[in-house]
């Protein structure tokens, strides 16, 4: 499961745009990852401009 560091997140939504599982939602300033849908592909980790996401 990908971990979110909310202190580093700039809420840009780039991670949402690469999540083929539709597991990520950006609700205003807060990223939410649906643990049921996330398949740990780590695509979101690569695209994050701020290192706010950490893969397993």
């Amino acid at each position: 499961m990908v971990k979110i560091n909310y202190k580093k997140c700039g809420y840009c939504g780039a991670c949402v745009g690469v999540c083929e599982q539709l597991a990520i939602n950006l609700i205003e300033h807060i990223i939410e990852i649906d643990t049921e849908k996330c398949n740990n592909c780590n695509m979101c980790v690569i695209v994050c401009p701020l290192n706010a996401l950490e893969g397993e």
Binding site: G10, A14, G17, V18, C19, E20, I46, V47, P49
Partner: peptide, 11 residues
């Protein structure tokens, strides 16, 4: 949806 290296990460 896009591939991560098809999205330019900007700061």
């Amino acid at each position: 949806k896009k591939k991560p290296l098809e999205v330019c990460s900007c700061a």
